[in-house]
Amino acid sequence: MSRKKVRVLIVDDSASVRQTLTAVLEEDPDIEVIGAASDPFSAARFIAKDIPDVITLDVEMPRMDGITFLRKLMTQHPIPVVMCSSLTEEGSETLMQALEAGAVDVILKPKIGVADHLQEAKGRICEAVKGAAQARLSARTRPQPFSRTVEKKLTADAMLPPPREGARAMARTTETVICIGASTGGTESLREVLQALPSNAPGIVIVQHMPEKFTAAFARRLNDLCAVEVKEAADGDAVLRGRVLIAPGNMHTLLERSGARYHVAVKSGPLVSRHRPSVDVLFRSAARAAGSNAVGVIMTGMGDDGARGLDEMKQAGAYTVAQDEATSIVFGMPKEAIARGAAMKVLPLGRIAAEILRLGAMAA
């Protein structure tokens, strides 16, 4: 019996992008491109006849822009959408609006060399589409999980230096460091958590799977909305109460200790668990640097990045939390962590902020 494929509609005004994206997606045996439209009006006519599982949607198109179409779609006929846009500062701000409007994920296309870039990024593109297909949207039945081909992938050992003999994390101190990992559906879930925190919340480091440039726009948006300071992490940034550091896209972020103080190291390096930044890299570095002074939180996301790292944090004495299935947009990363026994507590999204504050108060 053949497994059900993810049926995709591509909406982009560029014929070459439609052609290349179709070829890239159909290289995956779990994906079927059922149509391609040059603008939202053509897409709407297609959807009226055949409803896809996922739509890839360009931002800049004639007759109606992608954001306007997305908002109409979410109010009239919610379908998981992956936005496709150029890698620009202006574009990153626009895509923040798309994520707010209900887009599940973001993929990039450069202004030149689009075909080559899409071919190089085919693993990321196919994963984004598959993750979107599993997303929980209102008025939409969640599809059954499909199997996927698992290719070889690097672990966080590729980024972590060998542990020094006799080196260990500090014993319990007065400061708690919160490390959070999220992927598909994480942008709005993180906003909900961070908006619920007061200005003196424990220091937080976050890995959210996002492309470069978009993490800076994401951090600025959250900084405007939250009582805590939110910024894109820079190498050497201190982890302080009232501050949230977000790992830059396309760079790994590690937690390090100098004496009794914590800071982040931002480094290039290979993809880990198919991601850069990787949640596993952050979590496993936190296990080594902070031990029982850390709290690990794994949230909504596709795949298994962070599951091993959360387990290592738990083994090092950290307190660990996973988001529950009912409130996860995609119950992939938390599910894998729970299956490993890495999560000490499983909580709905609405209770995660209170748990962070409770654990921070215990250490104060």
Rank of each mutant, 00 (worst) to 15 (best):
P52G: 12
M64D: 10
I34D: 06
D39L: 01
E60P: 04
D58L: 01
D50K: 11
I51E: 15
S38L: 07
A36H: 11
V33Q: 07
I47P: 09
A48V: 09
R45W: 02
E60S: 13
D39Y: 05
T56K: 07
A48H: 12
D30H: 06
A36Y: 10
K49W: 06
I67N: 06
V59K: 02
R45P: 03
R63E: 15
S42V: 15
D65I: 00
I51W: 04
I67G: 07
L57D: 13
D65P: 00
T56F: 05
V33P: 05
L57Q: 12
A43F: 01
I67R: 06
I51T: 15
E60N: 11
L25W: 07
R45L: 10
A48D: 15
P29L: 08
D50N: 13
D28T: 13
E32N: 13
A43P: 06
V59D: 05
F41I: 14
M64C: 09
D58V: 01
D58P: 02
K49L: 12
G66A: 12
D65Y: 00
I47H: 09
V54Q: 02
R45F: 03
I67P: 09
S38K: 10
A37P: 01
P29Y: 05
T56D: 11
G35A: 07
V59R: 05
M61D: 12
R45V: 08
G35Q: 04
A36K: 12
S38E: 14
P62L: 04
P29H: 09
I47K: 06
A37Q: 03
A48G: 15
S42D: 15
D50R: 11
F46G: 02
I67S: 08
D50G: 00
R45S: 12
L25H: 09
T56C: 09
I31C: 03
A43K: 02
F46I: 01
S42L: 12
S38Q: 12
P52C: 07
D50H: 10
G66P: 11
E32V: 10
A44K: 13
P40Q: 01
E32M: 09
V33D: 04
I34E: 06
D53N: 13
D65T: 00
D28G: 09
I31P: 03
D39A: 04
V33L: 03
L57S: 14
I47W: 06
P40D: 01
E26D: 12
D65N: 07
D50F: 02
S42R: 11
P52T: 08
E60V: 09
D53G: 05
T56A: 10
D39V: 01
E26R: 07
D50W: 01
M64E: 14
F41H: 14
P52R: 07
P62T: 09
D58N: 01
S38I: 05
I34T: 11
E26T: 13
I47A: 06
D39N: 15
I47Q: 07
A48E: 15
E27G: 13
I34H: 01
P52H: 07
L57E: 13
P29E: 15
V54R: 05
P52I: 05
P52M: 08
T56R: 08
D39Q: 08
A43S: 06
M64Y: 08
D30E: 14
I55M: 08
A43G: 08
A37T: 03
M64K: 15
I47S: 10
P62C: 07
